[in-house]
Design a protein around this nucleic acid. Structure first.
Length: 191
DNA sequence: AAATATGTCAACCGCAACCCA
DNA sequence: CTGGGTTGCGGTTGACATATT
């Protein structure tokens, strides 16, 4: 329950860290809805958030922005990630630019948690054909799929429909709000 | 049923690039 | 050109969730 574990040394009102609360999200969303983005440090202060500008920026870009898609990476997206990573290595933001709605952070996470070990396994099975690191090696040594050099992106243009935030178990805890919820809430708050 | 291992993901940090007075 | 502030990036951490023993 108590997942706010800010470093409450002696003073409060310092700078908050750790997971964002729903209130903070609302404040940020609202502020940006009314004033737009700006200089993040200033924004954080003007909005009354006890967060660094950096933290606000990250939260907004990776989570709160209305056009951000989270979860349910499709097979097409995964393939694209694999392809682009093979081409460019860990240039996550560059890769992310080719996956509309996906953030570099999510792609990076997805890669490290789901793809990397998979590829390593495949490498091991092939008996270390070569010292493939993970920098852009022309063709990755995993028998994934057909090797396509120039992958044409517009396979999956940003369809906003199938967004259904997974929300596995609504009973998990108290505040587990989907972005839909938050956005519809903030509509009532036109300030 | 409890303990432990493993997976997932949001958020942090440091650094470098960029911008501008 | 320099210095100080801001932004963007990539690596890493740590909390929580889920699987396994």
């Amino acid at each position: 329950m108590e997942r706010n574990k800010q470093c409450n040394s002696s003073q409060d009102a310092e700078v908050r860290k750790g997971p964002w609360t729903m209130e903070e999200d609302m404040i940020l969303i609202n502020y940006i809805a009314n004033h737009g983005e700006g200089v993040w440090n200033t924004l954080a202060k003007s909005a009354g958030l006890k967060r660094t500008g950096k933290s606000c920026r990250l939260r907004w870009l990776n989570y709160l922005r209305p056009d951000v898609r989270r979860g349910n990476i499709t097979a097409e997206e995964e393939l694209l990630i694999v392809e682009l990573h093979a081409k460019w290595g860990n240039r996550w933001s560059k890769i992310a630019k080719h996956l509309p709605g996906r953030t570099d952070n999510e792609i990076k996470n997805y890669w490290r948690t789901r793809i990397q070990k998979h590829i390593k396994q495949a490498e091991n099975l092939q008996g270390q054909t070569s010292g493939v690191n993970d920098q852009a090696s022309s063709s990755q040594a995993s028998g994934m799929a057909e090797p396509m050099d120039v992958y044409s992106p517009p396979l999956y243009q940003r369809t906003m429909e199938p967004i259904q935030v997974p929300l596995p178990t609504p009973e998990s805890n108290e505040t587990y709000w989907s972005m839909e919820d938050i956005w519809s809430m903030q509509l009532f708050n036109g300030d």
